[in-house]
Amino acid sequence: MTTELTLDAPRAPHARTKRGINWEKWGWIYMRVSGVLLVVLIFGHLFVNLFLGDGVSQIDFAFVAGKLSDPFWQWYDFALLVLALVHGTNGMRTIVNDYVAKASVRRILHTALVASTAVLLVLGTLVLFTFDPCPAGADPELVASFCEDIL
């Protein structure tokens, strides 16, 4: 007795057999959502720092102090930091998966990516929220003009 062979129609939806959260899908969605937000944040960052005023030549400690003493720019930079760094790291993960065939090497590179991202997220966040625009004993020539009342 022979049995009929049944084949799924071409392009029939592929049923996921693995249970749990589909991280790969959420990563894919994250790249797109963060991308849209980053267009606004990065163009704004470059516009203020590179285009307005004197562009790069205006940037110094006092310039940064003027921005980071304003909570608006603190939170702006925080969003930029988190969204860009996680987007970039996830993109690098994809590239490692594409080119590194050996599982052990892949593991090492993934660990390096996660570790460096974690360190930079903590460092960058601390810088933004513990920044002192008028450090005690600083050269008055180098700090923002509003420090005169304090120093």
Binding site: V64, L120, V127, F131, D139
Partner: peptide, 10 residues
């Protein structure tokens, strides 16, 4: 890293 230098000194 270069931005973090604002926490080191002007």
């Amino acid at each position: 890293l270069d931005t973090a230098l604002v926490r080191v000194s002007p």
